[in-house]
């Protein structure tokens, strides 16, 4: 791609993300319905938060009755990694890249959108805000559409389809595992091992919510002490 990437180039590049987001968002919509949320409420969560794992955790925290600030802090801590995406992307885009409309398109900088945009730049593509809008809007639309469809279908939608329900239920662990593989490097192994072990121990000893929070903090601590 030698000319400036266009809006429709971004739309085209988003196709694999759209295919992945639709079923994951559908399963979020179903999970939200099971948790007692109305379709509009599930849609609002996707519209406002727009972060898959955080939204599933938000449901878990909400239904477990966790205090609002503790729940919000957990969700915020979970997405702190996104702080690194913008600078990394703009470094790859080069010094001439404009960011006048980043206040709008950057909200769509999810793990997958970031990965796709960075991959395009790494393969010799050029950066443009129009491309980022195309990439981000299609992914966001798929996320919202999937959520709404899942929430309307309702918590009992998959009762007659146990294998489909099982497949959708495995979507989230599969997504995390794939994301973990995408950022796996020798340098990150101690962080990953510490986070994983602490999560297991704290989950067994205290609770799943504590396991998640303590696992993240322990992993971040392991990163702090490494050379």
């Amino acid at each position: 791609m030698n000319t400036e990437a266009r809006f429709r180039d971004g739309l085209f590049a988003s196709l694999p993300i759209v295919m992945g987001y639709l079923p994951i968002a559908f399963s979020f919509g179903v999970a939200a319905a099971r948790a007692g949320l109305a379709p509009g409420e599930a849609f609002a969560l996707s519209l406002i938060i727009y972060a898959g794992a955080s939204q599933f955790l938000a449901l878990a925290l909400f239904t477990s009755g966790a205090p609002v600030l503790v729940a919000a802090f957990t969700l915020i801590a979970m997405n702190l990694r996104h702080v690194l995406y913008g600078p990394t992307l703009m470094r790859a885009a080069g010094p001439k890249a404009t960011t006048r409309r980043a206040w709008a398109w950057a909200f769509g900088l999810t793990d997958e959108v970031f990965g796709q945009a960075l991959g395009t730049l790494t393969r010799g593509g050029t950066f443009s805000e129009a491309y980022m809008f195309g990439l981000g809007l299609a992914a966001y639309s798929a996320w919202l559409t999937g959520t709404l469809l899942g929430a309307i279908a309702g918590g009992g939608a998959l009762e007659g389809w146990p294998s489909l329900s099982a497949g959708l239920g495995f979507m989230l662990p599969a997504l995390f595992l794939a994301l973990l593989l995408s950022l796996l490097s020798r340098r990150q192994v101690p962080v990953i091992v510490v986070a994983g072990v602490v999560t297991v121990l704290a989950t067994l000893a205290i609770s799943p919510t504590s396991g998640i929070l303590l696992g993240m903090l322990a992993g971040a601590g392991a990163g702090l002490v490494r050379k």
């Binding site: 662990p173 962080v191 986070a195 999560t199 396991g211 992993g219």
Partner: peptide
């Protein structure tokens, strides 16, 4: 900051 991302993903994967 660099460690929080992998730590969060590893934690969520295990959880």
């Amino acid at each position: 900051l660099a460690a929080i991302g992998p730590a969060a993903i590893a934690t969520l994967c295990v959880a």
